[in-house]
Write a protein that binds this DNA or RNA. Structure first.
Lengths: 218, 218
DNA sequence: AAATATTTTTAGGTTAGACTAAAAATATTA
DNA sequence: TAATATTTTTAGTCTAACCTAAAAATATTT
């Protein structure tokens, strides 16, 4: 059995592994968890004892197969709870993260299975992130940052990179939600801002925004 | 903010207070929480600092108004989650306790309010226990242990004292569920067992069972 | 390659929440 | 009421999870 703290470390390493697939550095884990590198070293040793990570001093950590499965299951629970909050309890997509952060640590396999069924076996959470299945697998969808699209390319908005409530509320205000079609009209060389069409309306999008919106090209 | 551990102590004192309304003894708290009296003394001092209990050495503790409100809110959450598990997720009444024990510590007022609404503002949990309202009040229903009924008295089964899964599964097996009418046909002096009618069937009930079933006389 | 900078680990300390064993207070019984 | 029993508190440890500061390893510059 793993403590909440151990679970949070596993989850952090899991997320970092999706980007780099090299040994995950102590510092990157510390940064993600808003803690100190020395604390990370302590915890990594413990996780290594429990055989959920492989650890070589100064070389970073990798999740074992067991560790990956456990981490994916926590992510699964997090995302299922997010769907529950939005679909059943009228939460908006910018309100769910902190609560899901707590709910993901509830230990009951039956609970997860039943929530999954209750929600109709959703495949994605409210931010467009895929929900791992019981085995911990998730299907990767081809996605591109809006900022990488060229003039006249179009696609469907399928996710966000930054899921802070500030960003999500901003998107709400602009009418940008998952599933909407976006067409790039123009790219400004000067500030990398974009002119796009969404909801049949033309609007200007800063590079910062375009760098945090995932598009499925079409 | 209170830790899970602090919340568990408050809840234990709350439950014990419903029976005795005197100062709650260190030992009774220790027994309920399956911990040692010395640990209880430590925690009581901390809770006393936080002004949720009043503590006099060797004289036991009492909840303050604030403490009572906080404790009632935890009980409220516990019971709402139990209803959720049974009504929405197909848990049976003997499976809900351990999960609710975890869920009751989730911190989100919106979550509780929404669950409450989602369930249609239930007044009782699956074991017949009343759900405190947001202010922490609960309406007490006149109830009697089945063992206190006399020959020929009848009533509706409205709750259980022991909610262990063993007992609840036993009741299921016997067809005894909340809302059923029970009529006492006979009381055996010898072993205090009862002969009753439930579901139009006659059956014999040991004193141990009758001592754990609440009836609303009718 | 040597010097410097950065990252990581170690060593030692803190706090919450538990524990054991012994001392102190209270309660019970003779 | 004195003796005994029980309950409660105190004193001192332990572990998980964090911390700071310094040492050691690795990476980057010059």
């Amino acid at each position: 059995m793993f403590s909440q703290s151990e679970e949070n470390y596993l989850k952090a390493i899991y997320h970092l592994s999706l980007i780099s697939n090299k040994g995950i550095s102590t510092n990157s884990i510390a940064e993600r968890l808003e803690t100190k590198a020395s604390s990370v070293t302590d915890m990594i040793k413990k996780l290594s004892e429990k055989e959920v990570v492989v650890y070589k001093k100064y070389k970073g950590v990798k999740l074992t197969d067991l560790g990956t499965k456990i981490a994916a299951n926590i992510v699964r629970k997090h995302r299922l709870w997010e769907v529950f909050l939005v679909d059943k309890l009228n939460f908006s997509w910018d309100e769910v993260h902190d609560v899901a952060e707590q709910l993901e640590h509830i230990k009951s396999e039956k609970l997860v299975d039943q929530i999954d069924a209750f929600l109709g076996f959703p495949t994605h959470d409210p931010h467009g992130d895929p929900i791992p299945n019981k085995e911990g697998d998730l299907k990767i969808v081809e996605k591109s940052l809006l900022s990488t699209l060229s003039k006249n390319e179009k696609g469907i908005c399928i996710g966000v990179d930054d899921s802070s409530s500030e960003f999500l509320q901003f998107l709400d205000k602009k009418g940008i939600t998952l599933g909407k079609q976006i067409t790039v009209l123009e790219k400004e060389e000067f500030d990398d801002s974009l002119s796009i069409i969404i909801n049949d309306k033309k609007m200007s999008i800063s590079n910062k925004i375009a760098n945090n919106l995932y598009i499925k090209k079409s």
